[in-house]
Design a binder for these strands. Structure first.
Lengths: 120, 120
DNA sequence: ATGTGGTACTTTGTATTGCAAGGTACCTTA
DNA sequence: TAAGGTACCTTGCAATACAAAGTACCACAT
């Protein structure tokens, strides 16, 4: 009989660490400058927040239907038209709140890290 | 006809911002000092990471069955026995990796925030 | 005109997680 | 024995990330 103990998967953990999180960085990116999906993917990749199409497109749809962003079709010189996303006023307000939430979370975790390190 | 646009729920967003995240703070808490569930809940609450029993107990079970933590029953003076959780060696190793992941995530997000603020 | 490759957007199914709500069991004290 | 507090656990649901596959548009070479 094998041990049956499920092995811990650090890659999965890294992915999970981002779960439900992406909305905030995506709003930051769109808020900084109107963009379209493949460019957002590149910016996330540059920021070490690796995300795939199957994650981003539904997320953009949710942001759109919540009224936080909107888009306009824009022609491209090198392919099919693009959905250029921009922030709405409501999006900007929500982004402020998300930023406050992030800072609170950031403080909390960094405090716990300090406690942990002090104890070792 | 109403607008049908689903309203954006900031409370849900805050909750989602923590999704898949809790494992890390919980490991930090157990790593700092052996504890049991209700005490972990208190520490999370103090750190502004509000979590409920129904979240924590299954999480502890997962950590246990992955071998990152273990527990021993300990008698209490004021109620039923407690499961006192401690870190395993493997848990300490994983925690190091999670901390590195956190720092990377932290950097990424804070960089995106700076970009966003610079553009406004 | 045709096909090839690249770009952009979408959808489906699965696994995982947080949470609300309810339940079980132990212990102390009146 | 009853009541209240403490501790642990389970079930069903909603939300999310992801892999994988699909659709459609466009430019360019043949």
């Amino acid at each position: 009989m094998s041990d049956e103990k499920p092995q811990y998967n650090i890659e999965n953990a890294k992915s999970q660490m981002r779960k439900g999180f992406l909305e905030f960085p995506v709003l930051l990116i769109i808020g900084a400058k109107p963009t379209y999906a493949p460019d957002i993917l590149k910016q996330l990749k540059n920021a070490n927040l690796l995300v795939v199409e199957g994650t981003l497109y539904p997320l953009l749809s949710r942001l759109k239907s919540s009224g936080l962003v909107e888009y306009e079709w824009q022609e491209s010189k090198s392919g099919p038209p693009r959905k250029m996303y921009t922030m709405t006023e409501q999006g900007k307000e929500i982004l402020q709140q998300l930023e406050a939430s992030w800072k609170s979370l950031d403080d909390s975790v960094n405090t716990l890290i300090k406690h942990y390190e002090k104890s070792n």
